[in-house]
Amino acid sequence: MTHRERSVRREDYVPAYLSLISNALSWGGSRLFLRRFNVGINEWRVLSAIVNAPGSTAARLGALLGLNKSVISRSLRLLGTRELVVVDTSGGRRALYLTEAGHELHDRMLEVALRREEILLTGFTVEERTRLLDYLRRMYENVPAMNAYEPEAP
């Protein structure tokens, strides 16, 4: 087989499917969330992360979400302007919390997010969903090793 005959075939390449699904989730979710709630997918992720880890700092949110600090900062600025998030500096750090309006928006968005997940997983049994989540968690655990991989120079 020559080098011209070798290629990554999307239908056999896990990263291609993960990328396609991730892009579709982000683009579709962002369009829907912007139209329906006037916030995008990154703001949804930040709201959800704060609900799950109230009092987190922006740096902690970035680590939890795998987003860089400029995306987190931009989202927090928008959410703060809309009075959905507050910053508590009383403990010597910038702890983030949702306001009552932030919790209300989160809860409305959560219904949509969970329904989208349900549609995405149509046709999967409970056992298949459990296995899928296990596989995805295991792949995620392999990400640091994958990103540390450096091929030897020729």
Rank of each mutant, 00 (worst) to 15 (best):
V14L: 15
R4K: 09
Y17R: 15
R115N: 11
L67I: 07
S26N: 10
R82G: 01
E11H: 00
H106G: 03
L84W: 03
N38T: 06
A153C: 06
Y149L: 14
A58W: 01
Y135E: 12
L105F: 01
A95K: 02
L34F: 04
E152G: 13
H3S: 08
S26D: 08
R74N: 12
I41Y: 10
R35Y: 05
H3C: 07
T130H: 14
R10E: 03
A153T: 13
L79A: 02
L67R: 14
F37R: 00
V87Y: 04
D134T: 12
I21Y: 14
Y135W: 13
N23Y: 09
V8S: 00
S19A: 12
L61Y: 00
R35H: 07
F124A: 04
K69L: 15
G92T: 04
L25M: 14
S90V: 07
I41N: 07
P144Y: 02
S30A: 06
G92R: 06
E111K: 15
R137A: 12
R93E: 09
S90P: 02
P151A: 11
Y97M: 04
A58C: 05
H106S: 06
R74C: 03
E100S: 09
R129S: 10
L61T: 03
F33H: 08
I72N: 00
L120M: 14
V14G: 01
Y149T: 01
L67F: 09
L136M: 15
A101I: 05
E118D: 14
K69T: 08
E118T: 10
R93V: 10
D88G: 06
S70R: 15
L34D: 04
N38P: 01
Y149C: 08
S22L: 11
V87W: 02
P154A: 13
S48G: 02
E152T: 12
M139Q: 09
L25H: 10
V126Y: 09
R108F: 04
L105E: 01
A58L: 00
R131N: 09
L47F: 05
Y149V: 07
V112D: 03
P144H: 03
L76C: 01
G102P: 01
M139K: 09
R4F: 00
P15Q: 07
E43W: 00
L114P: 04
R116D: 07
L84K: 01
L114Y: 07
F33S: 03
A53T: 11
E104S: 08
R94M: 06
T89D: 09
Y135R: 12
A148H: 11
Y13P: 00
R35W: 05
W27L: 13
E43M: 02
V86W: 06
F124V: 04
P151N: 11
T89N: 09
A113W: 10
D88I: 05
G29L: 08
R74S: 13
T130F: 10
R137N: 13
V14T: 15
L114C: 07
R60I: 07
R137L: 12
R45T: 04
G123Q: 00
R131D: 11
R4D: 00
M139P: 02
S30N: 12
R94Q: 11
L67M: 15
I119N: 05
T99N: 02
E5P: 00
S73Q: 12
V46R: 00
W44I: 03
P151C: 02
A101S: 15
